[in-house]
Design a protein around this nucleic acid. Structure first.
Lengths: 125, 125
DNA sequence: ATACTATATGAACATCTGTTCATATAAGCA
DNA sequence: TGCTTATATGAACAGATGTTCATATAGTAT
């Protein structure tokens, strides 16, 4: 079902499209570059064992920086840097109580991402 | 509610724990290092705009390498490299039909990860 | 066989990322 | 005022990552 292309990329393949119909429908459903970029940023932040553990811990309990560091066996500085990037992408939020900063997940989507993700990897055995 | 610690990390904070109870309960719930590592790998793979778009496209339609490359405006080589890493983490699977390799998402978890993720970023406005 | 083509892959390169170290800030207490 | 401590952050460095380029492989057709 090879069909002529309307806008093929020169470097990709010689023939234009194998199935132009499917490509067209997917192109129509495709998310905006901005949404894709934000989502990739979100996943990239979670693409690190330390931050996965931080996020998982914060899904269970509100915790301060010090307790997170001790829980994970990671330096305070490393945790603080990680929390900053997580904060910038709105994955976590925090409140200050005197000297202590308490962090939690920012919304339920993140907790569900973790759940769904763990369900996936548990199938990998 | 500061309590004595049983196993604090020296480099993290001077005092041992702010709230040992919460830390203890989180520690009990914590996933294995292996599961965490696999999940971080999974997220890291999706932490790239090109691969997010590939995964999203494959959530909609089964597509060959050539059509993915044209759809995204990316070189065939880049797509093939990306598909390889996605394949290695069991995020996608493929079937061969003659010269052509058709790819799809490997399981429903990945599609749900994308959905949940997009729902999160859409709240970032 | 040869020619063509869809896909795969190794190497190289520039860019990005996570941690460490040192230091700064800010809050509580003497 | 000082002293202590919980957190934040900038700089730097080693290691990882995505793309490109060149080339290899595998399947079709002549």
């Amino acid at each position: 079902m090879t069909v002529k292309a309307t806008e093929a990329v020169s470097d990709s393949c010689e023939i234009e499209f194998i199935d132009a119909e499917k490509v067209k429908s997917v192109r129509k459903a495709m998310k905006s570059a901005n949404a894709v970029s934000l989502l990739a940023d979100t996943f990239r932040l979670l693409g690190d064992p330390t931050r996965v553990r931080i996020a998982f811990a914060l899904a269970k309990e509100e915790l301060c920086v010090c307790d997170i560091a001790n829980l994970l066996g990671v330096s305070q500085s490393a945790v603080s840097h990680s929390l900053r990037t997580l904060r910038q992408m709105k994955l976590v939020r925090f409140r200050r109580e005197g000297k202590i900063a308490y962090y939690t997940l920012d919304d339920e989507h993140i907790a569900r991402l973790l759940d769904e993700g763990f369900r996936h990897v548990e199938e990998l055995v």
